[in-house]
Design a binder for these strands. Structure first.
Length: 193
DNA sequence: CTTTGGATCGTCT
DNA sequence: GACGATCCAAAGG
């Protein structure tokens, strides 16, 4: 099936509802495509681990805009990470894209990530995924509903989300550690360690 | 295989 | 001024 964008309404849900529905969707940047295999939900005001916990700031402004856009932030002084803005308008919900399976443009991904020894290492982490696809702060705010030639967008190729996704606590955070808001495609080798 | 520490800087307090 | 929604190379078993 050819790749087609999803309607705005697809994104207009609580992040914990949208997160598992993003599994097996395809993130596209130019010729590069990666199937989403791991995500985490961040629930704004009710989630101390969320960048949106304390309300709107310069950095997280995109999270407080309409759903279906990409929130990209700079992490640890050297990495970019990407989220899909969800929820209704003005509530700050988002879903972190943590890993993908390379689908197309694999040569370009290898060139962008010389440190990756195997292809399974190309997109197996939130910063790795962005590096492989060439996503940076310049892409913050991109509209994923519009299939653009250059910028990032999100496509659907007919593959449904897993009927029974893997689920666990979120990774790499120090607050609200107990919530099991991470979902992944069970058994997929591209899921981060 | 697992563990450990260094890199590096925008953001908010 | 402190702290990350991380990654990688190196060292040890």
């Amino acid at each position: 099936m050819p790749l087609s964008p999803l309607p705005r309404s697809f994104y207009d849900h609580d992040s914990r509802i949208l997160a598992p529905l993003l599994l097996n969707k395809v993130l596209v940047v130019g010729e590069r495509q990666a199937r989403i295999v791991e995500v985490e939900a961040y629930a704004a005001a009710e989630d101390p681990a969320s960048h949106a916990y304390r309300g709107p700031t310069r950095r997280n402004a995109t999270m407080f805009g309409p759903p279906g856009h990409l929130y990209v932030y700079f992490s640890y002084g050297m990495h970019w990470c990407a989220n899909v803005v969800s929820g209704g308008r003005l509530d700050g919900h988002a879903v972190l894209l943590r890993a993908g399976a390379p689908v197309a443009g694999v040569e370009a991904m290898r060139a962008a990530r010389p440190a990756a020894r195997r292809d399974r290492d190309l997109c197996s982490g939130p910063a790795r995924l962005c590096q492989a696809l060439g996503i940076t702060g310049a892409d913050d705010g991109s509209d994923l509903v519009v299939a653009s030639a250059e910028g990032p967008w999100l496509g659907e190729d007919g593959t449904p989300p897993p009927r029974r996704p893997g689920r666990s606590a979120r990774i790499g955070i120090t607050k609200a550690v107990d919530h099991r808001w991470r979902w992944f495609v069970a058994g997929d080798t591209n899921v981060s360690r």
